[in-house]
C-alpha cells in the first residue's frame, strides 16, 4: 500500500515538473571543507549549456588565470554576463575560511540558464582553484549535493613561496590569510610540467617555517579532495 502511494506521488511530481521548462528557483550553499585553506570570492553563475569557465586538458583562459593566480573574478564575471548568465559574485562578502559556509538564492525564471558553474581560488596556493563545472541544474524539487575538487590552472609554477605575487604572470602566492605560513623557502617547484587545467596534485609544504623549500606548512596547507561541497535546494 505504502509503495503504491509512493509511486503515485512520484508520478504526480514528475508530471507537474514536466510543464515548466526548467528549475527557476533554488538555493546554493557553498561549504569550505578544508582544514587550513581559505577561498577568495566565489563566482556563482547559472548559464546556458555549451559554455565552460574551464576545460580540463586545455589551457586556462586569461580570465580564469587571473582568478586562479590572484583571486580576481572581474574578467570571468564579464564573460558570464556576456552570456546573459544569472550571477552572484562574492556571496561570502570576502574570504571563506576553513569550515565556513555561505548561502545564496538564484532565480533563472525566463532564461535558458540551466547549467551552474562555481569557481574560487585556494589560498595560500600559486594557482589552485575549486571548480564546479557546468553541472545540469536539477529540475525536480529536492536537495542535491556536489563534491568539488581542486584544480591546477597550469599557468604558474607551484613554488609555494608567499611573495604577494597575485597578478597574472607574477610568481608566488599572493597571500596567506591564516597567517600560518613560513618564510625563506627556496622554492618547491620551478616550472609547471602540465600547462593545461588539471586536477591539482596537492600542496607539498614542509615543517621548516624559516627555510626549507616551501613557505607552506605541510601540517596545515595540504588537502585531499573534495575541497568544497555545494548543496543545491531546488524548490
Amino acid at each position: 500500500m505504502r509503495t503504491l502511494l509512493l509511486g503515485a506521488s512520484l508520478l504526480a511530481a514528475s508530471a507537474m515538473g514536466a510543464t515548466p521548462a526548467m528549475a527557476t528557483d533554488f538555493d546554493v550553499r557553498i561549504t569550505n571543507l578544508t582544514h587550513g585553506i581559505y577561498y577568495t570570492p566565489f563566482l556563482v553563475a547559472a548559464h546556458p549549456e555549451g559554455n565552460n569557465l574551464f576545460v580540463t586538458g586545455e589551457p586556462a583562459s586569461a580570465n580564469l588565470r587571473a582568478m586562479a593566480e590572484g583571486g580576481d573574478i572581474a574578467g570571468l564575471l564579464a564573460d558570464v554576463n556576456a552570456l546573459g548568465a544569472t550571477v552572484n559574485a562574492n556571496p561570502a562578502g570576502g574570504l571563506l575560511a576553513p569550515g565556513e559556509s555561505t548561502s545564496l538564492t538564484m532565480n533563472t525564471d525566463g532564461t535558458s540558464n540551466d547549467r551552474l558553474s562555481i569557481v574560487a581560488m585556494l589560498l595560500p596556493t600559486n594557482d589552485a582553484f575549486a571548480g564546479l563545472n557546468a553541472i545540469a541544474i536539477p529540475t525536480e524539487p529536492g536537495t542535491y549535493v556536489y563534491n568539488v575538487n581542486a584544480y591546477d590552472a597550469g599557468t604558474e609554477a607551484n613554488d609555494e613561496l608567499v611573495t604577494g605575487g597575485g597578478a597574472p604572470g607574477a610568481p608566488g602566492i599572493p597571500a596567506a590569510p591564516g597567517g600560518d605560513t613560513g618564510t625563506g623557502g627556496t622554492g618547491a617547484a620551478t616550472a609547471d610540467t602540465n600547462g593545461d587545467v588539471h586536477i591539482h596534485r596537492g600542496a607539498l609544504g614542509d615543517t621548516d617555517l624559516n627555510g626549507g623549500t616551501s613557505d607552506l606548512d605541510s601540517r596545515i596547507h595540504r588537502w585531499l579532495n573534495p575541497v568544497v561541497r555545494v548543496t543545491l535546494t531546488v524548490r
Partner: peptide, 20 residues
C-alpha cells in the same frame, strides 16, 4: 588548530618530511 570538523589533509608521515 580549530575546534571544528573539517576534511582531513591526510597523513604526512616521517617519509614525507614530518620528522617527528
Amino acid at each position: 588548530r580549530a575546534d571544528q570538523v573539517t576534511m582531513h589533509i591526510g597523513v604526512i608521515s616521517q617519509d614525507d618530511g614530518l620528522l617527528t
